[in-house]
Design a binder for these strands. Structure first.
Length: 422
RNA sequence: GUGGGCGUAGCUCAGUUGGUCAGAGCGUCGGACUGUGGCUCCGAAGGUCGCGGGUUCGAGUCCCGUUGCCCACCCCA
């Protein structure tokens, strides 16, 4: 048996786990102010949900899903993203009655079978929100602004990130645009890589994403979505941008921004940052007005975003921001010898019950070793109990910074310690 | 799926043209200081040198295979 975490997975050790808790708490507090409620859906769903929701032709569905058969032969898949599950739950439990709006946020692991590299894992954590039931541009602006505010509240400097926005059109104008791009690709095949030539049929818009230089050069001359939007989409897009302008949210229009999931309509956006290796997106999302219907639910507009925990952490650290510093203990309770161990254990518990972070030694080590440990833990005070203290029902409270010591009655220790760490 | 780089103590790494090459620093534990931390000094524990073959009198050190990790491509968070 291989005593290693599976490829593409990592243990979230204390440094990372603290950061995750910090990002989670920050998200919870911020999203709650915007009226979003927590929702947690299963880590696996019926394979069909993702295949239909995300799109049969997408990379995620064709080659990145963790799909398996359970003991009764059902095909299940570890969720590669969060939106499909939330929308499924919304349909299943009628969470968005006609005419109403519902807002959710979630956090948890996602799974994609890919070759791992910097900023890309097979299991990775995402935080996301979904705003369901509102087709109006202000909903788009709220979700985009929320994503930006989140990175701001984490302390990711403005100059280290940028927001890209685009409109992908809807069922009224996208098909025609798609065809025009496909036709353009066929007309310029000689300048395109093999992959892009194949894209002409399955997913022509993806050719805009190709990093191949000659492909980019060719695609620069391709029809622009901004010229192909129908009146409704154009008006919607303009309204979203107006609101972002009014909010002072800086963005760049990126007509080549396509994103990899089929369900997006109209507004799409992405926040990019440095420090992620070859990757650059730390969060992104868009509107998916057709997804409910695609999955068999009542037609319901919606949009949302998802942001990657590992990538956000990479970006923060690259910017010199370390979220979630260790808290350490306030008090260390040390026993001079065996006779004091019961008293020390009781004291530690009393301190903890009083709300003070306290630690003690369980293995009967020397007083010197205990104080050394206390120092390493960053304890502000040490409470020492030995035969002398026991005889008078007291404890020695030592200020680890000033070395000042004072004898205190056992029952007064929590108060004394609290005063010192005040 | 493809390509490149790398795999020596818990961590970061030295290890020359194959012959004390099994080491250093940090960390851990103990001691110097028999009731007291941060400095210093001393000591100890800890390694199938990723794994398997091969060449050789002799291989971390060369060759082959294999596996893992990292980075990149594809694509995405």
């Amino acid at each position: 048996m291989e005593l290693r975490a599976p490829k593409g997975t990592v243990d979230m050790l204390p440094d990372a786990a603290r950061a995750w808790e910090r990002l989670s708490k920050t998200a919870h507090a911020l999203f709650a102010r915007y009226g979003y409620e927590p929702i947690y859906t299963p880590l696996f769903e019926h394979t069909e949900l993702f295949a239909r929701g995300i799109g049969e032709a997408t990379d995620i569905v064709t080659k990145e899903m963790y799909t398996f058969a359970d003991r009764s032969g059902r095909s299940l898949t570890l969720r590669p993203e969060g939106t499909a599950g939330v929308v499924r739950a919304a349909i299943e439990h009628s969470l968005v009655p006609q005419g109403s709006v519902a807002k959710f946020y979630y956090a948890g692991p996602m799974f994609r079978y890919e070759r791992p590299q910097k900023g890309r894992m097979r299991q990775f954590w995402q935080i996301g929100v979904e705003l369901l039931g509102a087709a109006e541009p202000s909903a788009d602006a709220e979700v985009i602004a929320l994503l930006v505010r989140y990175f701001e509240s984490l302390g990711l400097p403005r100059e280290r990130r940028r927001l890209l926005v685009n409109s992908m059109g809807d069922e009224a104008c996208r098909p025609a645009y798609r065809d025009s791009v496909a036709a353009y690709i066929r007309a310029h095949e000689d300048g395109l890589c093999e992959e892009c030539r194949r894209r002409a049929d399955a997913n022509p818009l993806r050719a805009f994403d190709c990093k191949n230089e000659s492909c980019q050069a060719v695609m620069a001359g391709a029809p622009r979505i901004s010229d192909a939007l129908c009146d409704e989409c154009r008006a919607h897009y303009e309204a979203v941008k107006r609101r972002l302008d009014a909010l002072g949210v800086a963005y760049e229009e990126e007509p080549r921004l396509v994103r990899g999931l089929d369900y997006y309509t109209r507004t799409v956006f992405e926040v990019q940052a440095e420090g992620l290796g070859a990757q650059n997106a730390i969060g992104g999302g868009g509107r998916y007005d057709g997804l409910f219907a695609t999955l068999g639910g009542p037609p319901t507009p919606g949009l949302g975003f998802a942001l990657g925990f590992e990538r956000t952490l990479l970006a923060l650290r690259a910017a010199g921001v370390e979220p979630g510093a260790a808290e350490g203990v306030a008090a260390y309770v040390a026993a001079v010898d065996e006779s004091a161990r019961d008293a020390v254990f009781g004291l530690a518990m009393a301190l903890r019950d009083a709300g003070v972070a306290a630690e003690l030694d369980h293995r009967g080590r020397s007083l010197k070793a205990q104080l050394k440990h206390a120092d390493k833990l960053g304890a502000r005070v040490a409470v020492i109990v030995g035969p002398d203290e026991l005889a008078s029902g007291e404890a020695t409270v030592r200020d680890m910074l000033t070395k000042d010591e004072r004898r205190v009655a056992l029952v007064d220790v929590p108060a004394r310690v609290a005063a010192l760490i005040g």
